[in-house]
Amino acid sequence: MDLPRLGFGTYGRTGPEGRDAILAALEIGYRHLDTAQTYDTEREVGEAVRLSGLPRDEVFVTTKVSEGNLGEGQVIPSLERSLEASGLDHVDLALIHWPARKGGPAPEVYLRQLSEAKARGLARQIGVSNFTIALIEEARSILGDGVILTNQVELNPWFRNRKLADHCMSRGIVVTCYEPLARGKVGADPVLQRIAARHRATPEQVALAWELAQGYAVIPTSRNPDRIAQNFAAQDLALSSDELAEIDTLDRGIRSIDPDWGPVWD
């Protein structure tokens, strides 16, 4: 099953309200749910999948292995706990959420375990998140070409992350954009507002349509069913080449997620 390019992020979608938002996304038409061990939403994702009545093979579920589970002998047990929490017998995609910080396990330690998790059937496909160009190349040397499905990174019209994104795409690695709306801030951008008015759309839809037009995957989230539906409709918005080029100029180069222990960014 290929990675659906429009997904639903589940960060913050905890408890019954969160489960209902995830279920609403499935009812609207989303077929890609993104969770993580640190989000504490794996249980809600599993419940929503079951309540939806959809066949399991029609819903693509991604989870991410937390930084605290990267040591020798830790990755596979952590994914088994993820499956127990969700009640699913596999995830469609397992990612390394963050590369280990300085002094932590080497990439070979946790990437080999991730590959073994795929071989055991815990995950159908594997990938990474927040990997730099150097780390992507190291991962490719460890795992081989065509193994890493995606690199999930921060990317939106205000933070283009072009160097890394272009490198990933040149290697056949899909870029999955988190913070695709810059925490909703891009809605205030006058260029996006002007383009949106032209299409009778929202600025947020324009931002998502721009990302999808690059060939990226996007994982917006919301608790509001109307906003969830609006984001889903972005895939039907066709932007002109001039509009895409204009949006390309909006990069401010400012990250929303930048922990002091994170990797040295490109």
Rank of each mutant, 00 (worst) to 15 (best):
E47F: 07
E47Y: 10
A48T: 11
V49W: 01
R50A: 13
L51Y: 02
G53N: 09
G53Q: 08
L54S: 09
P55Q: 13
D57E: 15
V59S: 10
F60Y: 15
V61D: 02
V61R: 03
T62M: 08
T62C: 10
T62E: 14
S66N: 13
S66Q: 08
E67H: 08
E67K: 05
N69W: 05
N69M: 09
N69A: 13
L70E: 04
L70C: 07
L70Q: 11
G71F: 01
G71D: 08
V75T: 13
I76L: 10
I76A: 12
I76T: 14
I76R: 14
P77A: 15
P77D: 13
P77R: 15
S78T: 09
E80C: 02
E80Y: 05
L83K: 10
A85L: 12
S86A: 14
G87Q: 09
G87V: 02
D89F: 03
D89M: 03
H90M: 09
H90C: 12
H90N: 13
V91H: 06
V91A: 11
D92H: 14
D92A: 11
L93E: 12
A94K: 11
L95Q: 03
I96H: 02
H97R: 08
P99I: 05
P99W: 06
P99Q: 05
R101I: 03
R101V: 04
R101F: 04
K102W: 06
G103P: 08
G103A: 02
P107W: 01
E108K: 11
V109Y: 04
V109D: 03
Q113D: 09
L114W: 05
A117Q: 10
K118D: 05
R120P: 10
G121H: 12
G121Q: 10
A123D: 08
R124M: 06
I126R: 04
I126F: 04
I126K: 08
G127W: 03
S129V: 00
S129H: 01
S129G: 04
T132Y: 05
I133H: 02
I133W: 01
L135M: 13
E138H: 02
E138T: 14
